[in-house]
Design a protein around this nucleic acid. Structure first.
Lengths: 193, 193
DNA sequence: GTCTATATGTGGATAGAC
DNA sequence: GTCTATCCACATATAGAC
């Protein structure tokens, strides 16, 4: 368990930043200490162990998703919520191309080691699929069609982020985003919101 | 440079196997030595350094792709070649769900460290896209439509592999594979082969 | 609460016998 | 060519002063 307070938040942020940009292998106490401008030994006041620090970085990805979801839902209309999700991906194109999807690359690293939290991060994708499915249903799709549409949306965005990152070609992201926006627009607004 | 011979091949295979199943972090000299049933020190006769071993594992992924591509092209008909590619993904469903895409997970790990060969592996995706695009063109699509179809096919399969791995839900793979097979079948056979 | 110094453990690499 | 023993660098972790 980590202690509450501002300093703690700074460390969580630094840890997740380092994990995203330099990978789990680069998530060392020395690197985080440097990023947070704090001596290495001090980290042990906030983290029980290095594993605990990894857990904090992982947890932050999930927290971040919950924040975004709330923000998207706050827009009131399903069409806007879904567009906001796709739009965020478009806005982050450069970062995604450089470092990959924050969730996907983390899973790829955690998955290899059965390390703690591997399943947790993966479930963020399931929750994203379910969230999108709910909005597709609101837009008038049948329950089964909405379920498949939600899964497809997340899959498409993830595939695009992976390939953009791997090949350095940001075009993959714009291609799927425009496809998704077109699909959302073309849905009959029988659901009203 | 690694020495030629049977032993060398065994080591390359062991290294790429370990890299896939246990990740780059698990690709240690000790693990490879154990997998190849050979003392640790002996590896240095075949590999200059650990980095060289990583490079060998990475190179093997590219080689494997070239072999498969040749095999698929040997089928003679574009429709069969594309179906074989998608079919392989379907056959590997269990493995992909457990360990993820061999190319994608490797890129996710290499990309974080600017390590040697990161760009090389990523370009396997580009080559896959181009290969698929060529066959879609043969099936009658316009050059631009074929290009987009090739990219989309690889993106869809990669997204499916990622999500199946992350969530443990193999359904993602069957969903895109059936979608892809349907698309291939529905293409007018104006291209004859 | 914060920092320095240091112990411990793991993995990469080399020397040299065989 | 193959193996053992050892060295070295780096990262986690702890002790204890302030």
């Amino acid at each position: 368990m980590s202690v509450r307070g501002n300093k703690s938040d700074v460390l969580w942020k630094a840890a997740s930043q380092v994990a995203y940009e330099r990978g789990l292998a680069g998530l060392t106490l020395a690197n985080v200490a440097e990023a947070a401008k704090m001596p290495l030994g001090s980290l042990y006041y906030y983290f029980k162990s290095r594993d605990d620090m990894v857990g904090a970085a992982v947890a932050r990805v999930h927290t971040r998703f919950l924040q975004l979801r709330e923000q998207w839902d706050g827009l009131g209309e399903s069409r806007l919520s879904l567009r906001a999700f796709a739009g965020m991906t478009a806005e982050q194109t450069e970062t995604l191309t450089r470092h990959g999807c924050p969730i996907g690359t983390l899973v790829a690293q955690l998955g290899k080691k059965q390390q703690a939290g591997a399943g947790d991060v993966g479930q963020v994708f399931s929750q994203l699929c379910d969230w999108a499915a709910g909005h597709f249903a609101t837009l008038g799709l049948s329950p089964e069609a909405a379920r498949l549409a939600g899964r497809k949306m997340v899959r498409d965005l993830e595939g695009a982020a992976m390939l953009a990152h791997a090949t350095g070609d940001a075009g993959h992201i714009s291609e799927v985003v425009s496809e998704i926006l077109h699909q959302i627009d073309s849905l009959a607004d029988s659901g009203a919101n």
